[in-house]
Simulated scan of single mutants.
Amino acid sequence: MPLRIENHLCYFTLDVDGQEQSLPATRVKILTDHDKAMSYVELAGERIYITEAEADALTVEGATDGRNHVKAQEPGSVI
C-alpha cells in the first residue's frame, strides 16, 4: 500500500526502497487517470496510484476530491 494516514498526515511511499514523503491531508488532491480508470495523487512530480478505499480515506481526512467517475463506452465493460 503506497499510503498510510496518521494524525491527519498522509505518508506516501515513493519507491520500492520504502522512501516516504508526507504532507497534511488538506494539501492532497485526488485526481482520475481516465486512461487507466484509476485514482491518483501527484507528489514530487510523480503520479502515485491509490485504491478507491484509500481515496475515500483521504477525503475523510480533508483531502480535495477531484475524481471523475469513468464510464465505459463499450457494452459489457466492467466499469
Rank of each mutant, 00 (worst) to 15 (best):
D17Y: 06
Q21G: 10
I79F: 12
F12K: 03
R27K: 14
A37T: 08
N7L: 09
A55N: 05
V78Y: 04
H8S: 14
L23I: 12
A55L: 04
S39K: 08
Q19E: 06
G18H: 08
G62C: 00
V60W: 03
M1C: 12
R47K: 15
G18E: 11
N7P: 02
T13G: 10
N7E: 10
Q19N: 15
D17V: 08
N7D: 07
R67V: 06
G45W: 09
E46R: 11
I5Q: 00
T13C: 12
L43G: 05
G76Y: 04
I5E: 00
V16P: 05
N7C: 09
T51I: 07
L58R: 00
S77Y: 04
A44M: 13
G66D: 02
I30E: 06
I50C: 05
Y11I: 08
E6M: 09
A63G: 03
D33T: 10
V70P: 01
T26M: 14
T51M: 08
C10W: 00
V70K: 03
Q73I: 10
G62H: 00
D33A: 11
D35E: 11
A63P: 01
E52T: 06
V70H: 08
D56R: 09
L14Y: 01
D15H: 04
H69R: 03
D35P: 01
A57K: 07
E61N: 08
L23G: 12
L58H: 01
I50T: 04
M1D: 15
T32E: 07
V28S: 05
D33K: 10
L3D: 01
C10K: 02
Q73C: 06
V78S: 03
K29G: 06
E20R: 08
A25Y: 02
V70A: 11
A44Y: 07
D33M: 13
